[in-house]
Nucleic acid binder design. Structure first.
Lengths: 356, 356
DNA sequence: TTGAAAGCGATACCAC
DNA sequence: GTGGTATCGCTTTCAA
């Protein structure tokens, strides 16, 4: 066996077999362009020479196709994986990607970013999907500049970027109206964060509006619409930030409204993960959820059903699939789809009438 | 504003500004190599010309670095995302990737593969991590041929490939011994699948050995070790396949041992997700888990704690981090690390002594 | 079928 | 700081 050359290339193999580069290239990329025996001979030589097969970057450069979709997150990836809602969305994108033999390139873009500019620029992809990237995030301009197919989810700001999501405001209103109809007037709201991640505790109305996440703003506004309609002063609604979108953080932050004199009779959480945390906190305090206090979530993640959580269902998987397709088969130039998927209130056991 | 040329390239920009390509290249990749004013002028021209920035594929080709780790799954991605254990592992890999501004390229490789050969070959990555890719999977040779840094998890066959995982057999034995010590002799085992996915129901000893997943085999052997040590005939142990690694599938398949005359007093599940399903099934039937019947899992996923599930904890996050590092900083040639992480039996409330 | 030539778009090295 | 020059490794006409 030859000592494998430091660098085997298409040319090397071609020389070895005594054919041209084209033929070797065809052996890999177009099996039907040459007879089987020759193809085998080529592969055999490749093996002998330690030729690793066509270089992916070179091939991608030459063909102008990457075979991957870029998924940009503003949070750390570990964070994104932690929420069943995200996971549901990812599964959707993955499904359509798989169908076309396309990979998914996850690009982390945590807050204290800067170096991650590189990650976006160096991403060898055929298009980008922005997942909860807030308005005005620096990455957005960078990505857009790359001129690849692009779709945003949940964060619907830039009119020039295709969008798929839900009507956040109207959907949240569904939950708010449900609570209002049950007679609740003393209400608390649990959010993950308002101004910048990490900050936890009660948030003033100004802080609530200051957030750059349009989905969060939409949901808050939806709750507000419903509550104000029945005469609730929004300023009386305690909006509490958990600091992170996690069950335990929500459980901890629940103290801000659970351990006070004028405890609310209902809690609206802007996500199921947070709602589950509130449930935990209630349980700890021996509160009978659905009787002593009502809790509603948002998303309808798998765990929600098990917990009998009242929530607003949004089709996360479908959202992902549509986003994926929008990238793989971009719409004609000039058309900028803005797709809003239907949502639905799912009433389970965690909400009930106001206790006397 | 100029009508942006159909194709703007580094050269175009260089010509426009009146500098060389090098300078433009530096403007993007090495800001310190030219003065700020010029750099701005270049960017400005780029914007005007609609130049999308250095082409990722070209750059990757030239620099010989991809800026991404390839993660290969044998199951569909959607499947991988669904299991909290996988998610924990992914988070680990993601963590170290993030630290170095590296992306994660998810490469699906479902059973009925073929087209996905392409996905591996075209993956522009600096290394691969094989996640639960069984022995002898065709992808393995293909990936290995690419000559990039490579690491396997959980499936430890090929001696030439770096590995990180746990001692499956010894770890499973921990659970088995715990059950044996509690006096259980009539035991059932729940697995996801034995020979090929989708098949559910009881599996013969031959079928159990036929699986190509070394981790599964290891765990079964561990249970067997423990049980045979106290005189249990392994053939009397009902091994049932759920067909898929899902909670609901496990709940359904539990009927195979729950709804029979000689119901086992203990159930060992080779994963927590399955164990949770068994728990669901027991609850449905009004069985008091921990008293009427004992259930133990494996992995210690977050839900396990909430369910008070007795299980074997393995450090999934750590596993992922180590795998990631192994790819980013590959060990010296010739050294093939085989890392086994510690595990630990976590006794909670779902196991108890044999009922009289 | 096969081969020769022409890029794909960018970066590294080295003098200037 | 700057600008030539030489690749990086492959695919793709187009003719033979």
């Amino acid at each position: 066996m030859d000592s494998r050359a430091k660098k085997a290339t298409l040319q090397t193999v071609a020389d070895e077999v005594g054919v041209s580069r084209t033929t070797v290239s065809n052996a890999y990329g177009r099996p039907d362009q040459l007879n089987k025996a020759l193809r085998e001979r080529i592969f055999e030589a490749a093996r002998r020479l330690g030729y690793p097969g066509p270089d992916a970057a070179a091939r991608s450069l030459r063909r102008g196709r990457a075979g991957a979709i870029g998924l940009v997150f503003t949070e750390t990836l570990s964070y994104a994986f932690a929420d069943p809602y995200s996971v549901g969305f990812l599964r959707g994108v993955a499904e359509v990607a798989e169908e076309s033999g396309t990979g998914l390139l996850l690009i982390p873009m945590p807050p204290g970013t800067g170096g991650s500019e590189t990650a976006v620029r160096d991403a060898v992809v055929d298009g980008f999907c922005l997942y909860c990237v807030p308005v005005g995030h620096p990455a957005k301009e960078l990505i857009r500049a790359r001129g690849l197919p692009l779709v945003t989810t949940d964060e619907s700001d830039d009119p020039g970027i295709p969008y798929v999501g839900i009507d956040e405001r109207a959907s949240a209103r569904l939950a708010g109206e449900h609570i209002a109809r049950l007679g609740h007037r003393r209400v608390a709201v649990m959010v993950d964060h308002v101004s910048g991640p990490g900050m936890s505790g009660p948030a003033s109305v100004e802080e609530q509006l200051a957030t750059d996440c349009s989905d969060l703003r939409g949901r808050l506004t939806g709750y507000r619409d419903a509550l104000e309609e029945v005469g609730v002063d929004w300023r009386s609604v305690r909006v509490v930030a958990a600091g992170r979108n996690s069950r335990s953080a929500a459980a901890a932050a629940s103290a801000h409204f659970l351990d006070v004199a004028d405890r609310p009779t209902a809690v609206l959480a802007i996500g199921d993960v947070l709602a589950l945390g509130v449930l935990d906190a209630c349980e700890q305090r021996g509160l009978a959820v659905g009787r002593d206090i009502s809790v509603a979530g948002f998303d309808d993640v798998p765990e929600a059903e098990r917990a009998r959580l009242t929530t607003v269902r949004q089709p996360m998987g479908e959202k992902g699939r549509i986003a994926g397709r929008l990238i793989l088969q971009p719409p004609e130039e000039g058309k900028t789809p803005h797709i809003e998927l239907p949502t639905e209130l799912v009433v389970r056991a965690t909400t009930g009438p106001v206790p006397h």
